[in-house]
Design a protein around this nucleic acid. Structure first.
Lengths: 188, 188
DNA sequence: CGCCGAGTTGAACTGAATCAAGAAACGTGG
DNA sequence: CCACGTTTCTTGATTCAGTTCAACTCGGCG
């Protein structure tokens, strides 16, 4: 599935603008455990996951590797704290499987913004989707106990359980791997 | 301070677009504990806090009232899960002090989008600010213990401690009021 | 065959929730 | 301006979920 088809499921983009986006993007393959973006860098690329899954994480004050987000097929990914605002990021992005990703540079997207106001609007819509998922994750984790957090994954992102290692999921949920393992054992 | 002045601190808006926004917005006063928006409604208004402080919260599955966000002077507020996407919200918004708020309806903003692409872009920039604060809050809370969460408030939002009741801050931090009270007692 | 990463299991410890009771602050009306 | 009720905050005792640390299992792979 091409990313234009995906966009059209939620945003009525014109053929001209679609053409523009396609001409500015290119498809590339990455083997698993490729580092797409590194903390401290200004992120210059917006990716769209055609196939595979990537992980978005940071290293906290205590040196722990904490997963903030996963993006699998039909998701846009970039260092959202960096890409649009052109400043160094605190996140890393890595592939967890072999991936096929469309990519687009900031410069190209910027010039598309100027020529097609609807692309500007599209980017707002995508940001809203991201924001909304963040809010949903927040309320699923804040103040909830481990078993409820696990249920969140089961209900909202069941595919992750099959594709991602337990340790990454545990840090995504804000619990330890051991606790997640025990919870999963209880209900099986 | 007018909201146009605030916008101009981070976005170079033209006089024409500024004029448009001013003409579409109006200033109103609300006494403390006014309910600006209710769960289940589609939020029709974007507010800008000229004076005062508002709280953004939801009721979770167990019936607990959980504060997700505070907005004080020079912040934009709306039900971000509802306003742009025109669907029912799961959040409430209420004033915590007597407030002066600029407001703008969705319809007016929508028509401004069409006439001024830069307003479209401005809204994207504002969304990014919101998203980034959410990300920062996430990483400040996820996996951190109560005393570290408290430090987050002290460092990033010290004014809140003076203006907002302890119970609201505790739920914002994802801990109980009793725990917050004890932490605060330890260091003072 | 033996190593290695990923997952499981166990035991001890601990931070925070819960429940319950008081103290302090606030504001409303007499 | 005081008195009362309400809300907000503090303090204490108990309980429990989840972390930590450590050992062990399992399956794949060189």
């Amino acid at each position: 599935m091409n990313f234009i088809d995906h966009i059209r499921t939620f945003f009525p983009i014109s053929d001209a603008a679609a053409e523009e986006l396609v001409s500015k993007s290119r498809l590339a393959s990455f083997s698993r455990h490729s580092l797409l973006h590194r903390e401290g860098d200004v992120c210059n690329v917006l990716w769209f996951v055609e196939k595979g899954i990537v992980r978005w994480y940071y290293i906290d004050e205590d040196g722990r590797d904490i997963t903030d987000w996963f993006a699998s097929e039909n998701s846009f990914v970039t260092a959202f704290d960096s890409f649009f605002q052109r400043k160094p990021s605190r996140y890393f992005i890595e592939t967890l499987e072999d991936c096929d990703l469309y990519s687009m540079t900031y410069g190209d997207l910027e010039s598309s913004f100027n020529r097609f106001p609807e692309i500007d609007r599209l980017s707002r819509v995508i940001l809203l989707q991201i924001l909304e998922e963040q809010l949903a994750k927040n309320s699923a984790l804040q103040f909830r106990k481990a078993s409820q957090r696990y249920r969140f994954i089961i209900e909202k992102h069941p595919d992750l359980l099959r594709r991602v290692s337990l340790g990454h999921i545990a840090s995504y949920l804000g619990i330890t791997q051991e606790t997640l393992s025990r919870i999963r054992a209880r209900r099986s």
